[in-house]
Design a protein around this nucleic acid. Structure first.
Lengths: 239, 239
DNA sequence: TAGTGGTCTAGACCACAGC
DNA sequence: CTGTGGTCTAGACCACTAT
């Protein structure tokens, strides 16, 4: 009655996960189908309930299964086209490609918040903010314009940093532990100032990433990153 | 010596997770720091080791901690700027906004693979492929051009579908369980044909998502999705 | 009421790292 | 050698669902 429990070192809970995943991948169990109960799997594999529970619980956390107390365990709805894109910071990314990253600070100032910025930071208009404008190079070629505004309450020493040596990112990581972020990715024509810094024509398509991060209950940073569309793309894989 | 274990219904393992997360979020424990051992947490909380183990194991799976057998548990390196972007399919996304989604198939054909496509599909040039070109509307306004090539071996009935009624995505979900995907996001000027279908000017900045999906060890689908840059953005949040 | 999942215990044996 | 994490057991009590 037991499944063949080989002598290999694969943990039992992992073998149960593999079994369940196999039934789903093969199509034998489809979306919404009832999966054997923990008791049934305990009998099938001849193991304790905690072991079965771990396998099923992890697959539930991985969104492969859904569970309803008192009812049962079911195959979760598939999300065929859902894509998870991971965007890392530009310095790490360039170095990961084996290329040379360089930062060129173009502006570092304190400036009062306008209406739009004040709303984004949830502060009163006129509140002083820190502002940096940095061009990032990959092998000597401009690849990103980073236009960042920072809440002085979160990173009081921001303006004292040498941003040719460390990135704003690295400083903020130390000063203000990240709590959460909202972001958007869009395609916009380069305005004149950005185009000049990137060495491209005004109006060239740019990949624009905007991020707003919070730390300790406050909005810490609002940043817009411009990348030349023909030189830069976000890439990755899942599965 | 116990932590205050309140009468609330929060599971113990969750309270331990919250405690560990709090120490990290507050900055008291920093990247690379040694975290108390399971034994220490067992004594601190007065619970069994399995309960502590679950808390720490789950935080490890969530990339908050790293563990080394025989050594200890450490605070994982923070990824301040790492952003996880989830991209859903266009139909779900439009409906989630409470808007009306409509599909307009513009082309549905079988066509031999050229060199580029053959390489992407890992097939011989000249192998027949299915090809669809669909315009997706949000509230009657074109928002995406979906240019998709499909491996007939993975979805033999692809050309028989009514893509005004169901999306290619929905059909492929049934026909070819997803195994993995690679993708890229870039900003490109709209070519004339795409611009006409989107009702925008040729050369307008577009947000372009390319995906290549595999199923059952084969490349199932290669798709390029064009979105008008001023109308469409990927958005989301983390934390 | 019987079956399901959600959680927890108090042990156990093992592999591995560091001293 | 001791201490660490990795896994597993054989029970237990509870809340919830379906009948």
């Amino acid at each position: 009655m037991d499944e063949q429990i080989a002598q290999d070192s694969t943990p039992i809970f992992q073998r149960i996960k593999d079994y369940l995943l196999g039934e789903i991948a093969s199509g034998r169990w489809k979306e919404g189908d009832l999966v054997p109960s923990e008791q049934a799997l305990v009998r099938q594999f001849g193991v304790s309930r905690m072991t079965v529970n771990r396998a099923v619980r992890e697959l539930t956390a991985e969104q492969v299964l859904t569970r309803r107390q008192g009812s049962g365990t079911y195959v979760a709805p598939q999300k065929y086209q859902a894509t998870l894109v991971e965007i890392r910071n530009i310095a790490d990314e360039v170095r990961a490609r084996g290329h040379v990253h360089a930062s060129h600070p173009r502006l570092l100032e304190q400036s009062p918040a306008g209406e739009t910025l004040a709303r984004q930071f949830e502060l009163e208009p006129g509140t002083p903010l820190f502002h940096s404008l940095i061009v990032h190079d990959e092998n000597g070629r401009p690849i990103q314009v980073e236009d960042r505004w920072v809440n002085p309450a979160c990173a009081p020493a921001y303006l004292d940093q040498d941003f040719a040596r460390i990135t704003p990112n690295e400083h903020l990581m130390e000063a203000a532990p990240l709590q959460g972020a909202t972001y958007s990715i869009e395609a916009l024509p380069a305005p004149r100032e950005v185009a000049e810094m990137l060495g491209i024509g005004t109006g060239t398509s740019c990949l624009v990433l905007k991020r707003r991060t919070t730390s300790g209950g406050r909005v810490a940073s609002v940043v817009t990153m411009w990348h030349p569309g023909h030189l830069y793309k976000f890439t990755g894989s899942v599965g």
